[in-house]
Design a protein around this nucleic acid. Sequence first.
RNA 1: GGCCCCGUAGUUCAAUGGAUAGAACGGAAGUUUCCUAAACUUUAAAUGCAGGUUCGAUUCCUGCCGGGGCUACCA
Length: 597
Amino acid sequence: MMVEAKLLLQTCEAVKQLYGQEVKPETIGLEKTNKEITGDFTIVVFTLLRISRKSPEATATEIGTFLKKNMPEISEFNVIKGFLNLVLTDHYWINFIAKNSLRIDFGFHKQRHERPVVLEYSSPNTNKPLHLGHIRNNLLGFSLAEILKANGHKVVKVNLVNDRGIHICKSMLAYTKWGDGETPGSTGMKGDHFIGRFYVLFNKQYKSEIHDLMEKGLTEEEAERQAPLIIEAQEVLRKWEAKDQDTINLWKTMNGWAYEGFDETYQRLGVDFDKIYYESETYLLGKKLVMEGLETGGLFKKEDGSVWADLKEEGLDEKLLLRADGTSVYMTQDLGTAQLRYDDYHPATMIYVVGNEQNYHFDVLKKILVKLGKKFASHIYHLSYGMVELPQGKMKSREGTVVDADDLMDEMLGTAEATTRELGKANEFSKEDADKLFNTIGLGALKYFILKVDPKKNMLFDPKESIDFNGNTGPFMQYTYARIQSLLTKALDAGYRYEETDISAQVSLVLLEKETIKRLYLFQEAVSLAGKEMNPSIIANYVFDLAKGFNQFYQELPVLKEEDKSKVLLRLSITAFVGRIIQTSMNLLGIQVPARM
RNA sequence: GGCCCCGUAGUUCAAUGGAUAGAACGGAAGUUUCCUAAACUUUAAAUGCAGGUUCGAUUCCUGCCGGGGCUACCA
């Protein structure tokens, strides 16, 4: 049992014996002791005052006395106002290291036999390449999957590709008109970038048509509807839905180019999926669900034949689900996808990693599913993450202010290489090892930069200021790890078998040893909290605190140069444990650590 | 207009209702005959404004100010 759980139970027992009242453990305020104050854990007794009917100091002292008497782990306590600060024995912490430093599953939960979590992330459109917003999405999704697995969940990672719709037809039309028979192969361009070019081209020409029409006296709205290009694009969509062979062939070819491009980006980014859904394959199921809803009365039809959900009673508005011409909209597809996913896996939870601009969409989605009588609606969780903003505001593809995913990774690798060479760190590396290192560091910096921020919050990215490699950064953790590996190698060379030595007989710890051990202890809590909150930044902040603390330990305490051999072994155990937990934490974020840097 | 989210050092980020609001970058000053200085130490610097609830509020509630998002027969 973790010592904290025991503390809570014993505190309840103390309250019962001292004041004659039963209290639940979750009502006790238990925290880590602030760093300026002596103590390991602190019980805040203010909430117990109405039970004890005594002063905060008296209550804390009485409970402290009881705990010290009944828990051998406690060596002493002190009381400041209503705060009962408990100090655990050095023996407890030494034993903690002895018992856990070699456990490969430390902090992880065994996989429970239960239904899986289906986790959707990435969700690209096939008409343009991935950008910085997608990077945040992909990193969050991948990391969250790792964190959930660490918490004992079975996770199915799924991607939902938006491969159909008017926007896709726009790039197809532009390619037909101005493609000149070029291909990604003939131009040497990555497939998704190649297609993105035509999407941009369409919008440019379309805009100019609107401009011309408005010069002739049309309103903006009229011009947007009457521009020849949009009418042609709609015609392409109509043909697609009618399964016109040429249109389908072009669609398949162009989507194929996009997928090749995406695969390359995913691979570089280090993310993957267990299953890929395509909206072109789910929208028909959505339509079917809507028709069923119409029969059971959950939905209704308007005079023009369009089908709607009335959500006014739920505090929202009416929502269109099928157009008068019978074609489906985004929501229709999402209904189908949700059903399909449920049928495929019968998941306990369905998580969607999707930006907060779609909060309303998911509100509506859940409410419509309820109207359709789908019980799984209550198991849908929208992991709503904040926008990545640039100094000038939101990224807008039409205004050319997007930060492209591939470009950004290139840049990070370049910076990693330049910085590493400047420091002379890769001089003895082979070309292959050096490239691998630059990749590890560059991506590590990027991933950590993004994941250390609370997902719910918007974050700012300034392309002009390259991502830092010093301070609270990915490379900081990587460097700490590499130094640890170097030290451990030297230890083995010197004949220290720290992994095979029992250190539990040691009796005392110096402050930095104890603080480092306490940080290791906290890994367990970081993992479960990150899983519960679905928040990778908890792991990021944790591992920074661990690495930062270890660097102090490393700076102030000799390890191999310590004269007391048993101290050397204890410190090596701590050091090795820190290295492992840094690596594990970083892996939970989808970040690799190098053995040397 | 309506609904939702966010305002913390110069900047980017932390802080399950708890003690003197923490880091990093940038600024200032230091540490290398010593296990990797991508490190470490010291230092200046912040809760938008006004109320309320509470023993205690950055955190919860109300109003105001400022920023963002959504409010499509787009996705």
